[in-house]
């Protein structure tokens, strides 16, 4: 049984279908990718998976449960964490505080506990801090934990987002264009980090990416979509040689003639 299974997903905005009858699955312990040209609907798929958009119809099963009509925070609680295409850090807070947000859904201290500092509250605060520091150490940012997130260089901000997502203790990590804006060396580090997350933490990964090189290097299974439809699926080699994929990315022969 796949960890994530999507079937017949349909999403439309004001009558315009953005995702059409899309189906794909992600097996436990794999690194899968969702690729496609600009405007193919990749981020919309992510937003459906994470509960930010409400799909018109279809099935989304995660860990054997339907998450189709769940709210985003419930989905995160169920074990799916995401990063954003454009960084969405809590900029005026410290790096550590940012990462601590991930532990919110794994803890439960309420109002009275907070006011009276009950023993369980103190234990929980300690746990939140420890797990968050571990996540920061994992992405290599522990020494910057007290800096304001908004003041970090771009590459580091990305890492904060990763640490924050890891702090929710996910089973599946969704990465929305993780390589966007990174230089060549940073991309190499990114590849290592992705592989490291799976190996060390056993987290399954689904990424959306433009950078074909990166996708080819890390993913075991690639799903290609265009105009919201799946046009190909398979390993890097299979997908690369698929004429439909080449057409979607490069345009058809006829169009090229016109140019």
């Amino acid at each position: 049984m796949a960890l994530l299974e999507v079937q017949n997903l349909v999403l439309s905005f004001a009558g315009l279908e953005v995702i059409r009858e899309l189906g794909f699955s992600v097996e436990q312990g794999t690194i899968a990718s969702l690729i496609g040209p600009n405007g193919a609907g990749k981020t919309s798929v992510f937003n459906c998976l994470t509960g930010f958009y409400r799909p018109d119809s279809g099935r989304i099963h995660f860990n054997d449960h339907s998450i189709l009509r769940l709210k985003p925070h419930k989905i995160t609680q169920a074990g799916m964490a995401r990063t954003f295409q454009n960084l969405r850090l809590f900029k005026s807070m410290t790096v550590l505080e940012n990462v601590m947000s991930g532990m919110h859904c794994r803890t439960s201290t309420g109002v009275l506990g907070s006011i009276f500092h009950t023993p369980s509250q103190q234990r929980e605060e300690e746990l939140i801090r420890r797990v968050s520091e571990e996540c920061l150490a994992f992405v290599g940012l522990l020494d910057k934990k007290d800096r304001h997130a908004g003041n970090l260089p771009y590459g580091d901000q990305r890492r904060v987002e990763w640490a924050r997502a890891l702090a929710t203790k996910p089973k599946l990590l969704l990465l929305d264009e993780p390589a966007a804006g990174l230089n060549h060396d940073e991309k190499q580090e990114l590849i290592e980090l992705i592989l490291h997350i799976r190996k060390e933490l056993g987290i399954t990964i689904l990424l959306i990416e433009h950078d074909m090189g990166l996708v080819m290097k890390v993913s075991e299974k690639i799903t290609v979509i265009d105009y919201g439809k799946k046009i190909a699926e398979g390993t890097a080699v299979e997908v690369q040689s698929n004429p439909k994929v080449i057409e979607a990315y490069l345009g058809s022969e006829d169009e090229e003639d016109l140019l």
Binding site: F13, G51, F52, Y53, R69
Partner: peptide
């Protein structure tokens, strides 16, 4: 009905 009679519906968020 925050969008009213003639208002545009925004992308539905859950």
């Amino acid at each position: 009905k925050p969008t009213g009679i003639l208002g545009k519906t925004e992308i539905e968020r859950m």
